[in-house]
């Protein structure tokens, strides 16, 4: 007669005295009427006896501990720490890079909005300034020299007049820089008109007065609307776009770039350290 698994469990527990009284009494009743259960019980009993006689093996050595075994607490591999550090630095690197990129795009947008205006002003202002400077040059040079040459028969006085005119000439080019062809033409036209006005008066005194009045003439020429409206050319031509566009000047490497490089190098370093540790372990 086949014994079920439940009966096997009951018989096994019965042998070990692990059945409660109710289960035990019921099993005893069944054992009286079922020889198959009794045979199974005997087989389990025999197996249990054999197992209980299992020889105890001798220990190969003593397992007492030494301070070296327990003195040093088991150190966890630093690989996990390296991996965490690499992950954290990578995350920070990405975050800083995103911030940097975002601010760069924002600045780019602001520049795009402000740069055309400043460039236009600069481009428009430069020829006018150059033209005005050339006008001033012509105004200061041409009439004085010609008047001096025409009005003064004496070479010395003429040379003096030319020297004075040349002295006054020196201020204009500094302010104007290189005049364009257009400005030169304008200046010549202006000079011809001046020449027409001053040519009839051809005495030495008049020439001296003319020479002495040159600064005034120069001052008068400053009252010309085109000249006075233009800011000083030097400032326009030499001022960086950042100043005119209200952007701070860039000095050296920005701190955010240094931070990005540091984070990137740190992440790469920790990742390679974790990788090398992992290779050593495996």
């Amino acid at each position: 007669m086949k014994v079920s698994n439940k009966d096997w469990t009951q018989l096994s527990a019965y042998l070990d005295g692990e059945l409660n009284p109710r289960e035990m009494s019921r099993l005893k009743t069944r054992l009286e009427h079922r020889p198959g259960l009794r045979a199974a019980l005997n087989e389990i009993k025999r197996t249990k006896q054999i197992l209980s006689l299992t020889p105890r093996v001798g220990i190969p050595r003593n397992f007492t501990l030494t301070p070296a075994m327990v003195g040093k607490p088991h150190r966890r591999s630093p690989e996990r720490g390296y991996r965490l550090a690499a992950a954290a630095l990578s995350f920070l690197f990405v975050a800083v890079a995103v911030v940097d990129l975002g601010s760069g795009m924002l600045k780019g947008g602001m520049l795009a909005a402000s740069a055309p205006k400043s460039e236009e002003i600069a481009l428009e202002a430069l020829p006018e300034a150059a033209a005005d400077a050339a006008v001033a040059e012509e105004v200061s040079e041409e009439p004085a020299v010609r008047e001096a040459e025409e009005a003064l028969p004496n070479e010395e006085t003429a040379d003096q007049a030319v020297g004075i005119a040349a002295e006054e000439e020196s201020g204009a080019p500094e302010a104007a820089g290189q005049p364009s062809e257009e400005s030169v033409a304008t200046a010549e036209t202006f000079a011809e008109q001046e020449e027409v006005k001053t040519a009839p008066e051809g005495t030495e005194q008049v020439a001296e007065e003319q020479v002495s009045e040159e600064p005034q003439n120069r001052g008068d020429s400053a009252s010309v609307p085109a000249y006075t409206a233009v800011p000083e050319p030097e400032q326009i031509s030499n001022t960086p776009a950042g100043e005119t566009g209200q952007l701070p000047p860039r000095r050296g490497v920005p701190w955010i770039r240094i931070l990005e490089i540091s984070l990137g190098l740190g992440a790469a370093g920790f990742a390679s350290a974790a990788w090398s540790k992992r290779r050593k372990v495996s």
Partner: peptide, 26 residues
């Protein structure tokens, strides 16, 4: 309980194959 019963049953069948290795009294 159940694991021990099943293990004993398996051991019983296994040890039956090693009758010649068991002591005479078993």
């Amino acid at each position: 309980k159940s694991r021990l019963a099943r293990a004993r049953k398996s051991l019983q069948e296994c040890l039956r194959g090693f009758q010649e290795l068991l002591p005479g009294r078993f």
